[in-house]
Design a binder for these strands. Structure first.
Lengths: 242, 242
DNA sequence: CGCGTGAAATTGCGATCACAATGCACGAAC
DNA sequence: GTTCGTGCATTGTGATCGCAATTTCACGCG
């Protein structure tokens, strides 16, 4: 419902091209884990669900495939969220544990009062989501918290790499946290990170984010080793809204 | 000339879809530095040059933009190779110096006789290219040498990240080596790397690749700091062939 | 009741068209 | 000679169509 009504022709300079909106929709769905890993969706079905023609969906999907957030079965040509093997998880963890603390360390000297205040607000949302068991809200808030920091680093290339990594593990974070029931561990690490940022302590921020990641990835690794996350499907239906 | 003749309709399961061929063409042109940074090309002109309709070019370009190998001017919407600023170079160097030695170290235990032989052959081509001043051949051989090693690591995620990084600096490596005149430094590091791989010495391979990268990036940094590579255009025309 | 076998529906890819917006160039006014 | 406006060519985007290949499902034979 209310997917899109009239949609007059978009002007050229308008940044909200349809394929960008579609991209953002799918990306958000991936980060928050709304798209179940393993299910094969088709281009036309996605287009129908979003109320647009297949063309902009094709464009958006190409971007996501290039970012390895989606995979195309070479035989079927059907697209799905690539399943997370132990090897993939190991590499993603390694990359995240290198790049994200680095971004945090670079952000620390550039942190200001406004950033800390925004982080505090996000963290309140996050704890609220944890308290009421809102997995969706937790995923959104956690992503927002980390990338509010990372964007502050002013490191475009590294930021894009970090974004790509989140896109690849997002669906599985959802699976894991959905199972574990949003164990309330990570909040304290966030407090440490905020303290370090407030003090402009680069190494402290690096350690705090590294610890936060380690805890989260430990849970994911445990889940995957238990055979859970490989091809699991959490809720079922793919809910994408623009 | 001889871009494409009849081109009967490709079957669905055929891996050589037109947009993939276009992607490979542009990618190769970027890695070898055949596309000059800063020049704005249009979708239709690219399509005409390749002898295909604009549609598969659109697909290929989307992938490359997602990989940050091409950039779209938000106002013009014309696409170009993103110019290399000092900040971008610093981040790319950092990322490369982390990920590529890691891949080399992972490849070392899995190296075999065939790999070393292939590397030796590539290195001969490389030295030959250096000797006769064939910048193109040097770029191709250097890329082949590194990724013959990296592919052996069996680390799909990290390999893709490394490939993306090469795609981003490729055009500028060309500019720099075109200027410097292919100073013959890097060959010895390649010999070190091959020795380490033959001995299955992970840390030795890591050091050799790290040293190779350092030397290359030092040259690039010097060139960029001299104000050369920022928006420089080496030869001029974009030569893309399928 | 199981299992091939047929046709019909669905799929991705590429071409072509329409359209709005921008770029560019030629010419007029001062 | 310089500058500004006006027209035309070109651009990216999205919709629609055609095609070949695959998938899906039902029906009938064993």
């Amino acid at each position: 419902m209310s997917v899109k009504e009239v949609r007059t022709r978009r002007p050229l300079a308008d940044s909200t091209a349809v394929h960008d909106q579609v991209y953002d929709s799918i990306r958000q769905a991936l980060i928050t884990g709304k798209i179940a890993p393993g299910v094969g969706v088709s281009l036309r079905s996605l287009a129908a669900e979003l109320g647009v023609s297949p063309m902009p969906v094709r464009d958006a999907v190409r971007r996501l495939v290039a970012e390895r957030a989606l995979a195309i079965n070479p035989a079927n040509k059907r697209l799905s969220v690539p399943s997370l093997t132990a090897e993939r998880l190991e590499q993603l963890e390694l990359a995240r544990r290198w790049i994200e603390p680095e971004l945090a360390a670079r952000a620390a000297p550039r942190a200001d009062e406004a950033l800390v205040r925004r982080l505090k607000a996000i963290d309140l949302d996050l704890e609220e989501a944890l308290r009421v068991g809102d997995v969706d809200g937790y995923m959104v808030a956690n992503h927002a918290f980390h990338f509010a920091i990372y964007e502050r680093a002013g490191a475009e290339v590294l930021l894009a790499m970090a974004g790509g990594l989140w896109l690849q593990i997002g669906p599985f974070m959802r699976v894991v946290f959905g199972r574990v029931g949003t164990g309330s561990l990570p909040a304290d690490r966030h407090a440490e990170a905020m303290d370090a940022l407030k003090a402009r302590d680069a190494e402290g921020a690096r350690r705090a984010i590294a610890a936060d990641l380690s805890e989260g990835m430990d849970k994911m690794r445990a889940a995957v080793e238990a055979g859970a996350g490989l091809t699991a499907a959490p809720a079922g239906q793919t809910v994408i809204t623009m």
